[in-house]
Design a protein around this nucleic acid. Structure first.
Lengths: 213, 213
DNA sequence: GTCTATAACCTGATAGAC
DNA sequence: GTCTATCAGGTTATAGAC
């Protein structure tokens, strides 16, 4: 009865099932919103009985909280490209690429975040007030440094960040509208490249980014 | 018993109550989402008994449909500034101003729209496929004309429109996040002007808009 | 047109056998 | 750790008196 080397230990089962549930929950919360999502729907998509969800996550809200926390973590990871860069062309260019890629690969996560914020962040307000505030101030300092060094125009760093978030996340959050305006077809590889190129072109030129070196 | 000249005729009562209900519904749907909103909550906010809502709008969905239709109508109105303009500086500048003003004055409407689209437009998909497609193609033609006339750089008109929508609506849809990052305070008049200025500066320079005349 | 009472339904959560 | 059965609470919608 002791767990053998290979097959699933109890910890493995827990890890596996939690992953199944969290992936299903992200999709369902994104498509239906917190209110519209039902534990039954999530259970069906995860291929587990509804009661099992309550075994791993005591309440619907605790499950939702974990989903949003995971998304928030992914968002912050995408910002590492920002710091090491010598200037805005490299730093903002890479940041836009990274955020566009997240919008493409994980649109559900972006939607859950958007929905949470639109409803006045009932679950993750503390994260907004601590982690996000700190992160934002750190990046604003980087932008100000670039401005001081003459590497870009004196654009308000705060509103520049908002433009970056807005333009990149729009491709996830409003993906359905974009798809409809694309004749009902998802964007092709070429069209995604064109989107990235357009965003980078307009923003980098718009802030007067001067290539360093 | 016939309606006198001044006081409320039955039609006036209907108009008045429908307005009360629709205003309350817009706020509640924006804050709670379709699933999270309850007819009781809307009724309380409108100051009417719940049963009266069902008298004016047979179902929750029919009420929601009217709310979204009204918002969509407002959106299209904001675009009139686009056509008559001699070039992108005037046309896009005025469009950005108009959309930013809507985000400021009617954030709830913008949120309901965003939520509807994020959930794959279950109610207004037909509008997306007809009216929005036509409107978008019309504006793209205007942008292409400006490009042909050498009034701006050859930016993909489609992605330019997405950037305009994304940046302006972000101030409504993510208003709570922006407020949190502003020390918990709503943007002041001055800050709103700075926001408009930043968006216009970056985008108009970013597309290489050349003042006409 | 208004409003109370209630019907019909669904959801989150739990108990308890396996 | 799994799963069936079920409870308790809340929701949309309607019936029917006023």
């Amino acid at each position: 009865m002791t767990p053998s080397a290979r097959p699933s230990s109890k910890k493995d089962i827990r890890r596996e099932n939690e992953k199944l549930i969290l992936e299903a929950a992200e999709k369902v919360f994104a498509e239906a919103g917190f209110g519209g999502a039902t534990m039954q729907l999530i259970a069906d998509m995860a291929g587990l009985p509804k009661a099992n969800l309550h075994y791993y996550f005591p309440t619907k809200e605790s499950l939702y909280r974990r989903v949003v926390q995971n998304i928030f973590h992914d968002w912050l990871m995408a910002a590492d490209v920002f710091d090491a860069a010598p200037g805005p062309v490299e730093g903002l260019g890479a940041y836009i690429d990274a955020k566009m890629e997240i919008s493409r690969r994980h649109p559900a996560g972006s939607k859950v975040w958007a929905s949470e914020v639109m409803h006045r962040a009932p679950v993750i307000q503390d994260y907004l007030e601590t982690t996000l505030v700190e992160w934002t101030e750190g990046r604003m300092a980087v932008v100000r440094r670039w401005i001081d060094e003459g590497k870009m125009d004196p654009i308000d760093p705060r509103h520049l960040l908002y433009m970056l978030w807005a333009t990149t996340q729009h491709y996830a959050d409003f993906g359905h509208q974009i798809e409809t305006l694309n004749g009902g077809q998802p964007l092709s590889d070429t069209q995604w490249e064109a989107a990235k190129h357009s965003v980078k072109t307009v923003i980098l030129k718009g802030i007067g980014a001067r290539p360093s070196g």
